[in-house]
Structure formats: structure tokens, C-alpha cells
């Protein structure tokens, strides 16, 4: 059976509104646009670097809506002292990227 995405729809809606507030270009946000938002979490830069690596699934230097939701989810987990994993758990991979 299809593994449900770890990000629930109400969380996704919250992340989507942040995504849209950052003015995505053709549905993508550049690293420069995302960086201030993630730095706002006051997390150490090496943690944010790992969050980026895990969420920029296609490694294009940009985050689309789903990748951005993964990044935000990982940041919130890190803020609750959940260590950021070394690799993306399957349940976190957006259905669009499986």
C-alpha cells in the first residue's frame, strides 16, 4: 500500500502559504529566497545545510512546493530537538518525487 506522506494536509497548507509569500518563480524558490526563512529558525548553519540537502531532492538548487514543505518539516523537527536524519526517511519523500 502507498506509504502516506508524513506531512499532513493542514501542515502542508501552512507551508504552502509561506512558500507563496516568498514569490516563487515558475513554482520554484531559489536558495537565496529560502535561506533567510530557514536562518530565521536560529538553527546552526550546518543543520540547515543538511535540511537543504535532504529537501532539495532533485538537487537543482531550488525548492518546489513539496520540497519546501519537507524543508520546513525538518526545521520544525530540529526545533523540537528531533535530530535531522542523514538521509530522507521514505515517508518524508513527497509522493510527487517517488
Amino acid at each position: 500500500p502507498e506509504l502516506p506522506w508524513a506531512i499532513k494536509s493542514e501542515e502542508k497548507a501552512k507551508y504552502d502559504s509561506i512558500f507563496d509569500s516568498l514569490n516563487p518563480v515558475s513554482g520554484l524558490l531559489s536558495g537565496e529566497k529560502v535561506k533567510p526563512v530557514l536562518l530565521n529558525s536560529k538553527l546552526p548553519v550546518d543543520i540547515l545545510g543538511r535540511v537543504w540537502e535532504l529537501s532539495d531532492i532533485d538537487h537543482d538548487g531550488m525548492l518546489d512546493r513539496d520540497e519546501f514543505a519537507v524543508a520546513m518539516f525538518l526545521v520544525y523537527c530540529a526545533l523540537e530537538k528531533e535530530p535531522v536524519p542523514m538521509s530522507l526517511p521514505p515517508a518524508l519523500v513527497p509522493p510527487s518525487k517517488r
Binding site: 536558495g31 529560502v34 530557514l38 550546518d46 543538511r50 535532504l54 538537487h59
Partner: peptide, 13 residues
């Protein structure tokens, strides 16, 4: 993927 990642696509590295 490598945890350190490449600075070309990662704005934090």
C-alpha cells in the same frame, strides 16, 4: 546523497 552536499546547489554551504 552526501550529507555535506555540494556548495553549488546548497545556499548554506
Amino acid at each position: 546523497q552526501f550529507p555535506t552536499g555540494s556548495s553549488s546547489t546548497n545556499p548554506f554551504l
